[in-house]
Simulated assay, not measured.
Amino acid sequence: MLFIGAGVLFTAALALCGQLLSWIPALQLLGPLTWGILLAALYRQLLGYPESLRPGIQFTSKNLLRLAIMLCGLKLDMGTLFSEGPGMLLRGAAVVLLGITLTWYAAKWLKAESSLSLLLGIGTGVCGAAAIAAAAPILNAKEEDTALGAGMIAFVGTLFAVVYTLAQPLLPLDSLEYGIWAGLSLHELAQVALASAPAGEEALTAGLMAKLGRVFLLLPLCFVLLAWMRREGGNETAKRPAFPWFLLGFAAFSLAGSLAPSGQPLIPEAVKDFAGAAASFLLAMAMAGFGLQIHLRSLTRAWRPLAAMLLSSVLLSIITFWMV
């Protein structure tokens, strides 16, 4: 337990440093997740992997990561999503399918490494680093690939959000259409907020609604991936993934956060906000744990998957612009 606690505290320290760096105006575009991964990767290259802390680091990268994903469910208002956004769900499903398919075929064209490319496709289509973290254990992905994928998608998605913000006044879209476009095409919820908020409250609301439709689809997508992996594994039970019980927790928290008996929410907004902040920090801790797995040599093989994701992200932006 002592070694677990020390490792957890170590990842928390890296996540906190990443959070502090993300508050500096000149550095805030990268966000706490990216900074956490970068700091952890830098530590690994300079000082090596802290073997004595391995139990706690692995506990963070697996158990606390699952807790973070479950807590994310509290911010997903399923009632609003179903009552106001059935069309958003359909378009969100199309975006998820397109994001994965475009990235996969771009990766094949570029002869990119398939495992990392699939993770990037899932992150592009659904909800960035959180989707990669949720899908990685189902796909038996290496921790190194999970870290690289999360870092890449957080960085690229932030760049896209900045480009969207600069281009918004020049686009032939009203605030509602622009918000929907941002929600359908950007990678993470924070990036949607970053890009749509400058266009006004209507754009922000529309963007978050469109994005939540894609976040909701993380749950069924993971079950599809689970069934696919078990079928691919055949009789090789060692390669067959365990059932992702934490996704049921995600669904339960989503339901609990959406219930409002007698017009009053079952869970107060203050609790949801606290849970959301806790989930973000736990996710940053998990990303720091993944970042410690990164070797410099792994970056030399990562440019092809990165190029595939960039290509698919550009195509997705163009297609969703037309969809709006």
Rank of each mutant, 00 (worst) to 15 (best):
S52Q: 13
E236I: 14
F3C: 04
Q28L: 00
G128F: 03
D273C: 00
L226A: 08
V324L: 06
L218I: 11
A278K: 02
N63L: 02
R91Q: 12
L42V: 13
L259E: 08
L184F: 07
C17E: 06
A26Q: 14
P55C: 09
A307T: 11
I318G: 10
A133V: 12
L118P: 00
G151P: 09
G121N: 04
D145L: 00
A277D: 13
G56T: 09
V126P: 04
L219R: 05
L98M: 13
T300E: 10
L33E: 11
Q191C: 02
S312K: 07
E236P: 09
I138G: 02
M285P: 06
L38C: 10
G79N: 14
G289W: 00
W303C: 11
A288V: 07
A12P: 10
S61F: 01
E188W: 03
I319K: 12
A6K: 14
L119S: 06
P169S: 13
T80L: 08
A190E: 07
I294N: 04
E269F: 08
Q28C: 06
G257N: 01
L81D: 08
L2S: 15
P261E: 10
L189F: 08
L90R: 15
L9A: 15
G92E: 03
L119E: 05
Q264N: 13
P172T: 11
W23T: 12
I318Y: 14
G263S: 12
G179E: 00
A199G: 05
A141N: 11
L255W: 12
G207L: 06
I24P: 01
L76M: 11
G128R: 00
I100Y: 09
D273L: 06
Q19I: 00
E51G: 08
A278N: 02
M209W: 01
Q28N: 15
L139N: 08
A199W: 00
A130K: 01
G179A: 05
L21Q: 03
A135G: 05
A199H: 00
L159V: 13
G36K: 02
L38G: 12
L310N: 08
E236K: 14
P268Y: 04
P261H: 09
L119R: 11
L74H: 04
G257S: 01
I132L: 09
L171Y: 03
Y178C: 03
L9E: 05
I122R: 06
G123V: 04
G79T: 15
L110F: 11
A286Y: 02
K111H: 14
E269S: 12
Q191A: 03
L67Y: 08
V95A: 15
P55G: 13
A93H: 06
L306Q: 05
I180N: 01
V8D: 02
F281R: 04
G257I: 00
L98Y: 05
W303N: 10
T320C: 10
S262I: 03
V163D: 14
T103A: 12
M88Y: 08
G85E: 10
A302H: 01
M287F: 03
A308E: 05
K272V: 03
A302V: 05
L176V: 06
L176Q: 09
T320W: 07
T34L: 09
R214I: 01
N140A: 15
I57T: 11
P86G: 13
S298D: 10
R91A: 07
